[in-house]
């Protein structure tokens, strides 16, 4: 197991292997598994992601039980068809994929948590748009997921990927950083550029709190995945252009952990502070759960 991003990047460079390959070999060694077993499990995860992205834009879309979220991936798809997007079709497609996935999650559909269910749309948001942009084949898409997972493991083991512990920066922030690093690899960038992309993506989302209205993974979680995906693409492009974060990736991860520990409990997935605590947020909670919380 790699303790730091620096070690992961150094291993990739000294062994002259992409990070995806290092991750696959580690997984095989750790679980005495064959390459086929490891590969096919990831392949299954990819299928689940693809199915959620697709399901979110079928018909009128999917809606959660509460009605707080749903149908907006379809709105984005229709908007794109008019061809007048401000940030470009790829960016809005990434947003559509991210929102579709989290709408399926909020509607209690089947998703692949990457790294969490609340942040489940960020990775597919990026992956399926660069599949189109870069004509990725299935093998490259599976490798994207191994690379994202390798970086995600370092973040999870050194900081946190739970909103209750570290706020949304630990969930969507981590997902965005993982997606940025993996996008760089499949786009032909170096392991160092992946690390820079991760550092920039995570730096941009530091401090993001977890403030779900009524404690539901709906508002603002669904749309935070849109920014997670967009931010990942921007960070990946900056890294591929040669921009650097100046503060090393491992130090950004440590900063994220410290910020998370410093957040008050009301802003760590308790549904009390932030947007959950706005008059409208409180009203929504009352409408959904009523005054008294019955616990039978």
């Amino acid at each position: 197991m790699y303790d730091t991003i620096q070690e992961l990047v150094a291993a990739s460079m000294s062994q002259n292997k992409p990070i995806s390959e290092i991750m696959i070999e580690q997984e095989m060694a750790k679980n005495s598994a064959t390459r086929d077993e490891v590969w096919s499990q990831m392949s299954k995860n990819l299928d689940v992601m693809a199915a959620a992205v697709k399901r979110g834009v079928e018909g009128d879309g999917v809606f959660s039980k509460t009605g707080l979220t749903g149908g907006e991936a379809v709105l984005l798809k229709k908007y794109r068809e008019k061809g007048h997007t401000l940030s470009g079709d790829s960016m809005v497609e990434a947003v559509q994929n991210a929102i579709a996935t989290n709408e399926v999650n909020a509607a209690m559909g089947v998703v692949c948590a990457t790294p969490t269910a609340g942040s489940t749309g960020t990775l597919p948001g990026v992956l399926f748009v660069i599949q189109d942009r870069l004509n990725l084949d299935r093998d490259q898409m599976i490798r994207f997921l191994f690379t994202a997972g390798a970086f995600g493991m370092v973040i999870a083991n050194n900081a946190s990927i739970a909103g209750a512990t570290g706020g949304c920066q630990a969930e969507v922030g981590s997902a965005s950083a993982m997606a940025a690093a993996a996008a760089v690899e499949v786009a032909g960038g170096t392991a160092e550029q992946s690390s820079e992309a991760l550092a920039m993506a995570l730096s941009n989302l530091l401090g993001l709190v977890c403030d779900p209205v009524a404690g539901l993974v709906e508002l603002p979680c669904v749309k935070r995945n849109a920014i997670g995906a967009g931010n990942a693409l921007i960070a990946a492009d900056m890294a591929l252009a040669g921009c650097t974060n100046k503060i090393p990736a491992d130090e950004v991860v440590t900063a994220m952990d410290k910020i998370g520990r410093g957040l008050p409990r009301a802003l760590r997935e308790t549904g009390i502070g932030g947007l959950a605590g706005t008059p409208t947020g409180v009203k929504m909670k009352m409408t959904i759960f009523g005054q008294s919380v019955d616990v039978s």
């Binding site: 750790k30 998703v111 609340g118 997921l145």
Partner: peptide, 19 residues
């Protein structure tokens, strides 16, 4: 704590929250 790539990419699950 996270020992496998599938702790990060996965699990496949019914929403809405992994934790």
């Amino acid at each position: 704590n996270y020992k496998s790539v599938f702790d990060i990419i996965g699990p496949i699950m019914i929403g809405p929250s992994s934790s």
